[in-house]
Design a protein around this nucleic acid. Sequence first.
DNA 1: TTATGAAACTTCAAGCTTGAATAATTTATT
DNA 2: AATAAATTATTCAAGCTTGAAGTTTCATAA
Lengths: 156, 156
Amino acid sequence: MVAGPLPAPSGPGKDRLRLWVRLLRASRSIEAELRERLRQEFNTTLPRFDVMAALYRAPEGMLMSDLSRFLLVSNGNVTGIVDRLVSEGLVARARRNGDRRTSMVRLTEEGSKAFALIAAAHESWIGELLGNVSEDEARRLTGMLDSFRSNWEGRE
Amino acid sequence: MVAGPLPAPSGPGKDRLRLWVRLLRASRSIEAELRERLRQEFNTTLPRFDVMAALYRAPEGMLMSDLSRFLLVSNGNVTGIVDRLVSEGLVARARRNGDRRTSMVRLTEEGSKAFALIAAAHESWIGELLGNVSEDEARRLTGMLDSFRSNWEGRE
DNA sequence: TTATGAAACTTCAAGCTTGAATAATTTATT
DNA sequence: AATAAATTATTCAAGCTTGAAGTTTCATAA
């Protein structure tokens, strides 16, 4: 699905196909670089960073199902990642009184401190990796992607 | 750092960070939808589709290392995916006279026919999923991503 | 030639990811 | 209350992905 070294395709719909290919290659390139740096500098992974980032914004904690919905991944997936974060002492599951099926997942104090460090590095990496996109261009692109998202939501 | 409803992040570099988050969410949403349809309609996966797409554009075949470089994935990864495609009869490894370390990987006739069908569906799915991005907007976005890519390449 | 190193590919362990199946609990219905 | 249905989370098998280590082959040079 990634673009090829051959004659540029043309015809109806080709512009959108080409856009998709560029979008995918860009996000894969950046993701790969972030993954590499997270591993080298902080000995962690992108999925763990994603979970911690979500929890960092929710000091009161999140349900497992909130996490999987927010991160766009499956329930079983989150279970495994949280398991590992718990075993590293970065995250804790807290029993709830109301509903015994669920538990609130939140960062431990150690997890919160660790994340703050990683997040600062992460933000500067993004600034570097997207350095040749001007802030103005970034805002315009973001706007386009927002309008895409608003039309996307409500699918399924 | 007061707890509570999180203010939209602001400050230097926040626009790029926000752009990255949107980019990632957009491509993950679309990828998830494509994966689901490939599974339901064609009983295949996105990585297999990617490999077949690359080979479809190279009738003379590709080396394993060409494939992994082109697809932005590791060598060992491609080995596994090609193994499965070979066992399904969609792809073949052909010995080369010159260099016995390598083999040319190419689509079988069956693989080529199968891919043509899937690719047609894939393109129409993209047209649908990106339907609310106008062709003109698609071209502009593509242009921005292209300029990003050209600055990106030459890293590492 | 023979050693040395580089290149192409595979194998492996660990982790990520999914969809399906299951278990536990809560909510709704009768 | 008793039953049925829906919700929440975990478990599981299969496949994807990586980085590192290992194998085979080729290229270079001493």
